[in-house]
Amino acid sequence: MRHRAVHPAHLVLGLVVWAVWFVAMYGGLSVACAVAPPPVADGALTWVNGLLLLLTAFTAAALLYAAWRCWLAARAEDDVSGDARSRFIPVVSATVHLSAAMAVLAIGVPTIVLPPCP
């Protein structure tokens, strides 16, 4: 049985998720600061930072899960065909998902230390 995670769409899916997350972070922050900016004195401990961090953690977890699934698919592909070539897409996909997860975490880190709006 072929694993579904060998589909070539996985080559870009992780980073598509990353892009949507990125837009949500930037857009969400901008709208929050335009509509209801938290007081500057609160520093980084505001509801805006909290929501952004939650989104970051959730997205990163989903991407890590996807990376793991692609990795399993690559190993399954190994058992089925024994041809290294057919592992190409799931292996690259797994690294793409993993990289996307790392990018999400790295870009999300400043949310811990910086106040949202100034």
Partner: peptide, 20 residues
Amino acid sequence: SITVLLAYGIPAGHSMLPLP
């Protein structure tokens, strides 16, 4: 390199803001 840079750079940027 990036980690070290940001560890210095983000607080540095913060210190330049017109905060109360």
